[in-house]
Amino acid sequence: MRVDLFDFELPTELIALRPASPRDAARMLVLRGAGETLDSHVRDLPEMLEAGDVLVFNDTRVIPAQLEGRRGEARIGATLHKRIDLRRWQAFVRNAKRLREGDPIDFGSGVSAIAEARLPDGSWTLSFAGEEPVEVLLERAGQMPLPPYIAGKRPTDERDRSDYQTMFAARDGAVAAPTAALHFTPDLIDRIEARGIRTETLTLHVGAGTFLPVKAEDTDDHAMHAEWGRIDAATAERLNAARAAGKRVIAVGTTSLRLLESAADEAGTIHPFEGDTAIFITPGHRFRAIDGLMTNFHLPKSTLFMLVSALMGRERMQSAYAHAVAEGYRFYSYGDSSLLLP
């Protein structure tokens, strides 16, 4: 499909620079079926769901994966986006024209790496020196990798270390937050569970590729970056049992949705999964594993706006986003939410 079909006008003042406080005070646009549209709030989510529904969260934890360093006199910026092994990460590099294979980069605070190899997509393999786990090095020298549409408007600060982390964060490895879950609080989860709504977790380490623009003119020509994910056997079994009992599985965030769809077979059975996924969901995709999605508002012409258009219909989502703009909803990672129930 033509990428320009997924474009829309967005006033820059609607890009949220901080999350709502408290988190569940964020607004939520609810779309049900073919036509119902409701303005609500995240705190009202328990009343929007039914007993037996299952909310599936991503328990990945964002690491401070953005590094600023030097190769000689040249300033080098690196955003890690995918682990290769214990000491090597794939990274997008700023000022990469000043790098040669084998060059050392000093990131300060006793953290350094060798620019090992330039990859076909323009990213680099960085091999970190020393024996400390790379995650420990990042805590010392790294910054939280805020999306460029926030980082371009204000500097990252200490508050982002907690703001850009969900309450479910347990497994280090993401370089972008699963932002739909940023809206949840312990009190909201208590009220959800009190209504008989169940929760499950999986892990998808979100990569920086989620921020990359779609430069192709046709969706067939866009290559997705792979991300590592895992669904254990017990979780898959419980999700399959819920759907077999006629209950709904609702993904909290496009990351949870993409991993569930990657793990499901043609019959809709979710299997245990561990490995990379580069699934690209566009209109025409037949959803096999999920019955709904809670997600934030996405960028024009992004793969994620294509995903929600696949779930609800492109014209429906264009209309919903026009409504959200007119009503002043806040967009992107720190913005408001939507609940999509086809």
Rank of each mutant, 00 (worst) to 15 (best):
M1Q: 10
M1V: 12
M1P: 12
D4W: 00
L5E: 13
F8D: 03
E13H: 15
A20R: 00
R27W: 02
M28N: 07
G35E: 15
T37C: 13
D39T: 11
H41M: 10
H41I: 08
L45F: 01
E47H: 10
E50P: 02
E50H: 13
G52L: 08
D53H: 12
V56Y: 00
N58P: 07
D59G: 01
R61D: 05
V62T: 08
I63R: 00
P64N: 04
G72P: 08
R75W: 03
R75E: 14
T79H: 01
R83M: 07
R83S: 11
F92A: 05
N95A: 14
N95Y: 01
R98W: 01
R98T: 12
D103H: 03
I105S: 07
A115K: 00
A117E: 14
R118S: 05
L119C: 11
L119F: 08
P120K: 11
D121G: 09
S127R: 15
A129E: 14
E131Q: 14
E131M: 09
E132G: 02
P133T: 10
V134P: 07
E135Y: 03
V136T: 13
L137E: 09
L138Q: 11
I150C: 01
A151L: 13
K153W: 01
R154W: 04
R154T: 13
E158V: 12
R159F: 03
R161L: 06
S162R: 13
D163F: 11
D163W: 15
Q165C: 05
D172L: 08
V175F: 00
A180T: 02
A180Y: 00
L182R: 04
P186I: 10
L188T: 06
R191S: 10
E193M: 08
R195F: 03
E200V: 10
V206Q: 00
L212E: 07
V214M: 04
V214Q: 01
D218M: 09
D218A: 12
D220H: 15
I231V: 14
A233M: 09
A234E: 15
T235L: 08
L239F: 04
L239T: 07
N240V: 10
N240R: 08
A242H: 07
A244C: 06
A244L: 09
A244P: 05
R248G: 12
V249T: 13
V252H: 00
G253T: 05
G253W: 00
T255G: 05
L257V: 09
L257C: 15
L259V: 08
I270L: 06
P272E: 03
T277L: 08
G284A: 04
D291S: 14
H298Q: 13
L299Y: 01
L307N: 01
G313T: 12
G313D: 09
Q318G: 12
A320G: 11
Y321N: 10
V325S: 06
A326K: 14
E327Q: 15
R330W: 01
Y332V: 06
G335Y: 00
S338G: 15
L339Y: 02
L339S: 10
P342N: 09
P342R: 02
